[in-house]
Design a protein around this nucleic acid. Structure first.
Length: 275
DNA sequence: CTCCGTGCCTGTGAGC
DNA sequence: TGCTCACAGGCACGGA
């Protein structure tokens, strides 16, 4: 499932590949991802437009197009983009095909059809919830002081619930959340208000650490995630708790636990991450 | 404010 | 071995 590091890889790779290219045609084989725009309108709005930039915020991907248009994408669980030479090789999971000027096509794949597309005019793009909600942890404004501020008035929450709340920090999903809590040696059910100053610092460092390492290792391919060339990431080889139920902790040898916390499957080491 | 349940989907794999 | 069915989870929404 694409979380911040995977979406960042998409943004960086796509920026290099599509910038300056024109969309010659749009073919939708599924239209359920469209939000607030009819299929014909979506096609006609994008056709003829030129990619000017690709950006990311939280788990959202933004294609800046000519004509003051922003195409917003959320990949949700199984969405991803493929970029490869024409002619396009599509399969049953291909939901949209973008014929680009030149020799390459852009393809949107989404097994479970949870992904969403939205269009914004550049002038009111700043009002988009994807741009307003939560703080992106990789933006310069995110520092320890800001992080401490986010904890204020949320003292009764569990850490798991806090980190997954996109209106607080935008970008963490289940994998990087569990890994960050392990790094910080904090139990996922701990309450925000119980943290000491040192623990808050540890959590802050852990969140930034796992995200940066995730990007450096080009994402986590535990199930469907592939980059735009179809290649797997490597962070799955360095997971310390996620999907390691009943396996020994790399630090202490204790058996990794999986239990539902804040409604999510949550993995942790009961010894390293004690209450 | 907190947190649960539901719906949206389909591939996977645990368990019979 | 073959089948069924619960589960996986990001997010929006409704409700306790």
């Amino acid at each position: 499932m694409p979380e911040l590091p995977e979406v960042e890889c998409f943004a960086r790779d796509l920026r290099k590949c599509v910038k300056g290219r024109m969309i010659e045609a749009v073919q939708l084989s599924f239209t359920g991802m469209l939000r607030g725009v009819a299929p014909e309108e979506f096609g006609s709005m994008l056709t003829g437009k030129v990619f000017q930039d690709v950006q990311r915020r939280g788990k959202y991907l933004f294609f800046y197009l000519s004509g003051e248009l922003v195409w917003e994408v959320h990949l949700r669980m199984t969405g991803y983009f493929l970029f490869y030479p024409a002619p396009a090789v599509t399969d049953k999971h291909t939901r949209a095909l973008f014929i680009l000027q030149g020799t390459n096509n852009l393809q949107f794949q989404d097994i479970r059809k949870f992904g969403t597309f939205r269009l914004w005019q550049k002038e009111d793009f700043h009002t988009a919830p994807s741009m307003q909600r939560g703080i992106d942890p990789l933006e310069d404004v995110f520092n320890l002081h800001v992080f401490q501020g986010l904890l204020y008035r949320r003292s009764k929450r569990s850490l798991k619930y806090l980190l997954l709340d996109q209106s607080v920090i935008a970008g963490l999903g289940n994998i990087y959340c569990d890994e960050a809590l392990f790094r910080a040696r904090l139990h996922p059910a701990r309450k925000v208000g119980d943290l000491t100053k040192d623990e808050i610092k540890r959590l802050f460092d852990a969140v930034l650490g796992v995200l940066q390492e995730g990007i450096r290792l080009r994402g986590t391919s535990v199930s469907d995630y592939r980059d735009i060339w179809g290649k797997k990431g490597h962070f799955q080889d360095f997971l310390r708790v996620y999907r390691r139920k009943n396996k020994p902790c790399f630090l202490c040898g204790e058996t990794i636990t999986r239990e539902v916390i804040a409604g999510r499957g949550t993995h942790y080491c009961p010894r390293c991450q004690n209450h």
